[in-house]
Amino acid sequence: MLNNNAYIINNHENGVKKFEKKRNITCIICPQGCNLEVWYNENNEVKEIKGYSCKRGLEYGWNESTNPVRMLTTTIQIDGGKLPVVPVKSNKPLPKDLLFECMNVIRKVQLKAPVRAGEVVIKNILNTGVDIVTTRDM
């Protein structure tokens, strides 16, 4: 399962029970590695981001908490190539929680040599608008 280290915090302010949710993420934009706190409101929407030291950190925190994406790289089996597998990547970042599903799709594909680097081997994977492309000639 993908990580979603969220905490529910119950604050008792003036005797009224208040719902708050917080999540910690580490900014990876620079070696400083600030600890960002993402605060959510009752509707699970990002309310505020704290702990950043610069604008880039704020932007990272925002993207990471509203729409986390990752590049996916793996290999696909290939017939008649110099090697049994050819490396591939997503041509754009994919939603983080679709990575495993994408792997299941990719695992079922079998290619035939030759392929050129940059060839699209799976178009629009899981309707994400993202293609899977090869990263070397084989």
Binding site: P87, A117, T135
Partner: peptide, 19 residues
């Protein structure tokens, strides 16, 4: 090294090792 993360400084884009 088939993962991405190569070349940000020199090519200004994130390439995989083979690329």
């Amino acid at each position: 090294c088939i993962h991405t993360g190569f070349g940000l400084k020199i090519f200004k884009e994130e390439l995989t090792g083979p690329e």
